[in-house]
Computed example of a mutant assay.
Amino acid sequence: MGHHHHHHDHSNGNIRTAFFLNFFFTIIEIIGGLLTNSMAILSDALHDLGDSLSLGLAWFLEKYSKKGHDEKYSFGYRRFSLLAALINSVVLVIGSVFILTEAVPRLLNPESPNAAGMILLAVLGIVVNGAAVVKMKDGESMNAKVISWHLLEDVLGWVAVLIVSIVLFFVDLPILDPLLSIGITLYILYNVIMNLKKTMELFLERVPDGIQLDDIKQRIEQIDNVLSIHHTHLWSLDGEHHAFSTHIIVPDHMQKDDVCTIKSQVNKIIRDIHLDHVTIEIEYESEECSVNQVHHH
């Protein structure tokens, strides 16, 4: 256990370093974007801001969601990561809309950005985000994987800015800057919308991706001595940690051992899913299920 725990702190430290790297750099970018008069750099700054926000929230929540359950939150704090994702999405949507309102008018009367300054910032961007990617590369958790993917995206964004700024340095084509800016911003918006959709589905307790609930139900119903099942629910706390509950009706003559056998078979069926909470309610045929008296199924 000690080893595992140590490993986790290590990944958390990486998230923290990546966060500070990214956050300070985002501030430099925003100032740089304003000084070089480049919309492309500003939209890349927004992209990086989004990533530093999710890094910061990931770092904070990685600590927070480990708190386990208490009196107030009996399921623990895993859901807080969904809240973080939601906040992050809102920030990015507002930022994107702002950048689009600035960049679109510039298509009609483009202003020349300072190409030399852009080149400098882009090189810096590639170096800083590259360093963050390397730092996050060995992360194990889903969190860390998502983050290193985001950071890699940032590097590619900066490569695009670098290419455009080199072209602008030699050719006077100021329209390239707002074009790139709009491209980056639309890409950000697309990702935000996809993430929002996932987040909302988890909030609404949708069955987690890649799990066939009907298939699980059928397999449970095929177990010896299982007459039928109802109130079967499978939901997710944060996209990684799931919970499952079901009511199983068995014949009246079942002994304790038989019931234990059924439970262990159900556990076998759902073993492949990463379940944090499993509730199996056993009811006898002649016993009126208390839940059934309330809602007639």
Rank of each mutant, 00 (worst) to 15 (best):
I184R: 03
S165I: 00
G33F: 02
N195Q: 14
V159M: 06
V104W: 07
L107G: 07
I147K: 00
I126Q: 01
A116Q: 06
S181F: 10
V278C: 11
D9W: 08
C289R: 06
P113I: 05
N143H: 00
V97D: 03
S43K: 05
E205Q: 11
K137R: 13
A144W: 00
I229T: 13
D9A: 08
I31V: 14
K198G: 13
I229M: 14
D252S: 09
H231A: 13
L21S: 02
V134M: 09
V266S: 07
L100K: 09
Y187Q: 05
L61Y: 10
V164N: 00
N14L: 05
H3K: 11
S81L: 09
L53Q: 02
H69K: 14
Y77I: 11
H230R: 12
D154T: 01
L121E: 01
G117Q: 03
Y64C: 10
L121S: 04
N88M: 01
I270F: 08
I87Q: 05
R16L: 13
D9G: 09
I28C: 11
I216T: 11
L186M: 15
D214G: 15
T36F: 08
E287Q: 11
T261I: 14
T101K: 09
N22E: 00
D238R: 02
V155C: 05
F80H: 03
Q218K: 15
G157S: 13
I166M: 08
E71D: 08
D276R: 13
F25N: 01
I220C: 08
E281W: 02
G95Q: 03
I163M: 03
Y284H: 11
H150K: 00
K256M: 11
D154C: 01
V93M: 15
K197W: 14
K135R: 04
R106D: 14
S228N: 12
H242A: 12
L120H: 07
D177P: 10
H297A: 15
L53H: 03
K145P: 05
D258M: 15
I119F: 02
S96R: 05
E281L: 12
E62Y: 07
V134R: 06
L55G: 01
P174W: 12
G117H: 06
S236G: 13
E29V: 05
N292S: 14
K72R: 13
G13V: 04
A18H: 03
H7N: 04
M118P: 00
N292Q: 10
V127L: 13
V91K: 10
L173V: 12
N292K: 14
L179S: 11
G33R: 00
I99T: 04
P110V: 04
Y187R: 01
S52Y: 01
G76L: 12
A132N: 02
I166Q: 05
T232D: 06
L180H: 03
D257G: 10
F19T: 00
A122T: 00
S290R: 11
T17G: 00
E281D: 15
E240L: 14
A103P: 00
I229S: 05
L173P: 04
S96G: 14
I119L: 08
S11F: 01
V278Q: 07
